[in-house]
Amino acid sequence: MFQYDFMQHAFAAGTVVAIMCGAIGVFVIARSLSFIAHSFSHIGFSGAAFAVCIGWNPLSGLLLFTSISALAIGGFGVKVFRRDVTISIILSLFLGLGLLFIALSTKQATAMYALLFGSVVGISMSSVWEMLLLSLFVLALLVVLYKPLKFDSFDPVGAQAARLPVRVLSVAFLILLGIASSEAIQIVGSLLVFTLMTAPAATARYLTNTVFRMIMASAFLAVIGVWGGLVLSYYTNAPVTFFIATLECIFYFMALGWHALRERRKARTVEAVTPVWQRA
């Protein structure tokens, strides 16, 4: 499997992006931004289609569109965009625009397919480098902003009470999210950004009880999902993204089941030590 360049590239790019998405995903779900991440991916899709249409590198279109929308959303305030109506309108507009750009360009079907469903196999070495640099940039900023982001994401009222610059943090995080979704699109496609951005973090939430371990677990699960997807796809010829999505989903429900089981067992032990006359 590793004798092929395209598999090496796919593993390298997939690993890098999975670590970054897994890490940022923890903050995405804590800030309830998963649907904004989803709309970013659609906005990114139309950006990439636009870039393809005028003959740019798709990544520049992705970054351009997502960064502009990050600034726009930051300007209006995130609350407006948490409303699902606003999101659905924006989603449809940008999907429509993407469709238009695809129709206008000459390389239609394959480009469209790659943007919607991902194209990790067949990624070039230069793209791998691009993704590595971008991911390192995002991760470095996450490290620098770790403490204030943790405060603001998990205890927004407290962060405001402690007079953190919450507005600046929010916009900075949206820009990071825009970059992260631009990268995730290239691995799993814009329709399935959730699989790397929110599913591993949602799973990690059931497994640990500190934010740092949650980030580690989330990144780990994302990487395992991508590796598993690549291996399974190599041997079955079914699409990689399908396997990644399925694996992340299985992880999630296993974690959920384990969590529920553990809670029930805990409840039973409490019941066992409570004297009969005190039971309700």
Binding site: V144, K147, P148, D155, A162, R205, V211
Partner: peptide, 30 residues
């Protein structure tokens, strides 16, 4: 300042000690 209404997710993956340490004055050092 301890504000009035504060919703904390019951599933919040944070121990009390970590939660308290969020309030430390240094903004970036984690």
């Amino acid at each position: 300042y301890v504000p009035q209404s504060r919703q904390i997710d019951t599933e919040l993956p944070m121990q009390v000690r970590d939660f308290v340490s969020l309030g430390l004055p240094n903004p970036f050092r984690f």
